[in-house]
Design a binder for these strands. Structure first.
Lengths: 392, 392
DNA sequence: TCAATTAATTTGCCCGTCGAATTAAAAATG
DNA sequence: CATTTTTAATTCGACGGGCAAATTAATTGA
């Protein structure tokens, strides 16, 4: 609790922590002493701007001790593997991006890929893999973060594997695996709009649709530990076919492949043109006023708004963050979408959630994965702190 | 914690509580002593069946002290006001049901109605209203249970009122107001399928659709305190008009009025026939093989399954309880519905939630409201326990 | 130089919890 | 029938987390 307050405020004095948490100064002194002894935080001299110094003993700020833990975060998509190095303070020390082999990956390929990326990203930070305290990996699919068990991931050949233990065996540091939408939620919680908000939803828009649910400052993983399958909530009875094999999934209306499927009816592209480029052409056509192209995006955004509205109706959130980088998703961030959401939710007036857009790229997702690794490592450190005390 | 263990197991010995909670026997002794002193629990002699008695000091069972707190629970619908008297043990001591004046009710009518019902139900239990420690009231609409503030309720003329304080002024006991779906969830938690399950969803089917979300043994009220608006999640873009004024709400396909609206296209009823009877006729026709009638129910159940599937996809529950009394809802409990849910959710195999049906009537809803009142009263008692200790 | 002021620490205390020892109440034993 | 065995419950002493109050530390202002 003390730790997360310091983290959220970057640096603060003990007295401020006491006020913010409601604890007594005595308790704060005791706890911070332990954290300092454990190397997790450190004292820093507060820079006093001339003229505004007050009388009395000056406060001594505390901040996270960045060098105590350095971790890597990694994000796997069908096209790229993106990685960052983060220290405990959240400073980005290095980054790397390598092309992803064409999925689905064999176990062998995966076991070679991850260390390769770690080598690359640590090199970028002028470090060695051994310097890392942990790595966090964000992947699409259904992941039980507590155990590292991957029920299903579109990127892998093998399913139902324990990726955490699989990778840990060939790596010198602990590995934490997390659903990629939850990685982004984590990034929002540590570095983004969610810093001061205890409850919010993060909707991610990428190849698929993801949802991260943050309740009371913690990620809600469903009662059985699996992530929220927002992309496969149904928005149409007997609707469009989804790549999951079911019908009417939101994803089947909003994802790239859904848009291209529609477009293929009236547009013939050369084989050689990438999906990416096709989408850009489609989007440009819509913007230029082509009604058919426009109707494709219109339907997608209408369906998306409907899915969002359902989330708002069920969770009654005060904040919804939409996270996705690409230009081609602009239509999903349009005012029209927000209007539909507002008109499709019961929450009235001051209960309407704020909807904010974060155009974050893969790097932020990787940072989220790193944040998850940091959180777990810190949690372990603090737990051990308590235990070692008990023995002494 | 100790208290809820005793409540859930009806009666158990101290040593069992220690084992179940992980506390030491010493602690259990201390806590139970306090609870006994407060009158909340009492010792009972365990009935030893001959032949199966073990050596050693016999365990002394503890059970809730029913007479310590007697509460009333009340459920308001558009047609009836249903009330029960419950003691702390959950024994039903009395019941009453009076017709509801035609909504919307004025403040005056409401303020007269509630005491009248309390008089009736306490009389049925051979008691006086003064004997009640509290009353709990379950109403449809959006209710902030913590404050008793009613944002919107279809039964009342006035909206945005604090029903809790409004009623408390004219009643001798504290009043707790709760969304009716949450009342049912509460009933499941105390008396039903949810007794041993920490996380589950309760879907209620009545005039509208309700949802109670139980996470970690507590009712989840959305991050802003308002209940989950399941009935107004959207299952169809630009769909059927709902009584809330929006389009495509699940309720607009499943609720009574939705079915009758469809039926009115091909069936003309006498003015005098009640909605209730119309529905029964419609249902009988469908059962008898009338294709048009059947298609109405078919669509309703298909939409309902879709809404359920979305809940499962988002919350990943291990248990979903469907609660509704009337025969006319049988089609919603059909195997076909469960099949659609299973085929529309990502959860596979062992992660599929169990779906159970509870044909509970208004009386159980009222019991849930009473349970809520009991929980609040007990919580207050236990809190005061700690405080009075601090002073002594 | 000395008060005034504010931050941080130390001290002593309370409370909840625990392990270990003790007491209580039964059955089994000879 | 007294004694041992067994199991439940309680008591006792101790410990750790957290707090209020007192104390110490470090600064500004008079």
């Amino acid at each position: 609790m003390v730790f997360s307050h310091i983290r959220n405020n970057l640096q603060m004095a003990r007295i401020d922590i006491a006020n913010a948490t409601g604890m007594s100064p005595a308790t704060v002194t005791a706890i911070t002493a332990e954290l300092i002894a454990a190397g997790l935080i450190e004292e820093v001299q507060r820079v006093v701007e001339p003229g505004q110094s007050k009388r009395g003993r000056p406060r001594v700020d505390l901040k996270l001790h960045g060098k105590e833990h350095i971790v890597a975060g990694m994000k796997l998509t069908g096209r790229w593997v993106t990685a960052v190095i983060l220290d405990l303070e959240g400073n980005q020390l290095g980054r790397a991006q390598v092309p992803m082999p064409r999925p689905p990956l064999s176990r062998q390929t995966l076991l070679e890929l991850v260390p390769k990326v770690i080598d690359a990203v640590t090199k970028d930070a002028d470090m060695a893999p051994e310097d890392l305290s942990a790595i966090g990996i964000g992947i699409p699919g259904t992941v039980q973060a507590t155990t590292g068990f991957v029920d299903w991931c579109p990127l892998f050949q093998e399913q139902e594997i324990n990726l955490k233990y699989l990778l840990q065996d060939s790596l010198p540091m602990p590995v934490f695996v997390e659903n990629d939408a939850n990685s982004v939620a984590m990034a929002e919680l540590w570095f983004g709009f969610g810093k001061d908000v205890p409850d919010f939803l993060v909707v991610t828009i990428e190849e698929g649709l993801g949802l991260g649910i943050v309740l009371d400052g913690k990620i809600f993983r469903g009662t059985q530990g699996f992530g929220a399958e927002f992309g496969h909530t149904k928005v149409q009875s007997e609707g469009a076919l989804c790549r999951c094999g079911q019908r009417g999934c939101l994803e089947a209306y909003v994802a790239d492949y859904a848009l291209l499927r529609e477009a293929s009816l009236f547009r013939k592209w050369e084989e050689s043109i990438s999906d990416e480029d096709r989408l850009i052409q489609l989007y440009d056509a819509a913007k230029a006023g082509d009604q058919t192209s426009k109707s494709i995006f219109d339907r997608a955004s209408r369906m998306f708004a409907m899915g969002l509205a359902n989330l708002v109706n069920l969770f009654d959130p005060s904040l919804v963050i939409l996270s996705g980088e690409q230009m081609r998703f602009d239509y999903l961030y349009a005012q029209a979408v927000f209007d539909i959401v507002r008109n499709s939710t019961i929450q009235k007036g001051h209960h309407q959630p704020e909807i904010r857009v974060h155009k974050w790229g893969d790097m932020m997702w990787a940072k989220g994965a790193a944040a998850y690794a940091l959180e777990e490592i810190v949690r372990l450190s603090i737990d051990q702190l308590g235990n070692s005390d008990a023995h002494s």
